[in-house]
Design a protein around this nucleic acid. Structure first.
Lengths: 152, 152
DNA sequence: GATCGAATGTCAGGTTGTTGACATAGACGA
DNA sequence: TCGTCTATGTCAACAACCTGACATTCGATC
């Protein structure tokens, strides 16, 4: 035997038993399913995420949207330009007070979001159906606990 | 109220309560922690993943490595070139039988992997410590169930 | 009022990762 | 033997996302 001698964080035959690996795999599967579901609506996952957050909290700035969707300001800026070009979101060119420009969905943006939500929620439903009924709440809790443990 | 009228897959005040959102957030936190941990070793997450799989299953081809790490053949090919340039992995230029070229770690590659594993396993340990002791096995199961439900 | 710090928007460059396309190698059935 | 099918490696173009850097704006402090 030649490698894998550093002590693993919990008993496991190999890396594929680790939480990180499983998390990555689940995320990859979700991402793939969402990509496929959104393709019919001519939308990408980042764009959809942005629209969804924007519907929930209208008037958020670029930087705030970036934090809400776990990407950098620079990445979100690109997404927003795409959404603006597509006429799905608007940002005022100038603001009277600060530097942040509040982003809002257009009517077209809301319509596109609603139609995409049907497909996305279908994916979510498939995903939820996979986990035993009584364990969903615990799963959500544990995912949060992981976040807290990692960057809290 | 103007949007978010498509029926969600399970009772939730908003998208931030959905499994998909939590999964994305947890993955993002993990990715960030791993990036930071691996930076000290001058290695990226994809490179580390490749090395780890390679240690476990020497001789895998580019396409097989890609599937094991959930990326495309094209992406893995780039990673492998980087590893080869760095002298961490080797691929024969020609093979007698098929088309697939088996990839193997060099001694330097194994050393680099082992040193990186210490940092990565520390991150994994932090993550595992966050979830209640008795629930780790269930968490792993549920993540697998999600994968099965999504692409099975 | 002047200064410092924090947050924001944005530019530049690079890495990672994707889809699409193509040629090649082997397996299998007609 | 000849297609056909599948898997592989690779090229090209593009999208997503990152780090690093810079100027602008506001609020807090002196």
């Amino acid at each position: 035997m030649s490698s894998s001698k550093a002590t693993p964080p919990h008993p496991a035959a190999d890396v594929t038993e680790h939480v990180g690996y499983r998390l990555k795999r689940a995320h990859s599967a979700l991402r793939g399913a969402l990509d496929a579901a959104l393709r019919e609506h001519g939308m990408s996952v980042p764009q959809y995420s942005c629209l969804e957050v924007l519907a929930l909290r209208p008037g958020l700035s670029n930087a705030e949207l970036a934090r809400a969707t776990f990407v950098t300001r620079q990445s979100m800026n690109l997404v927003l330009r795409g959404l603006q070009e597509a006429g799905l979101a608007t940002r005022p060119d100038v603001v009277d007070h600060g530097r942040a420009r509040p982003v809002r969905l257009t009517d077209a943006g809301e319509r596109r979001l609603r139609s995409a939500q049907e497909s996305v929620y279908a994916v979510e439903a498939r995903m939820v159906a996979g986990v035993p009924a009584g364990r969903l709440a615990a799963l959500l809790e544990d995912l949060d606990a992981i976040v807290d443990a990692l960057d809290g």
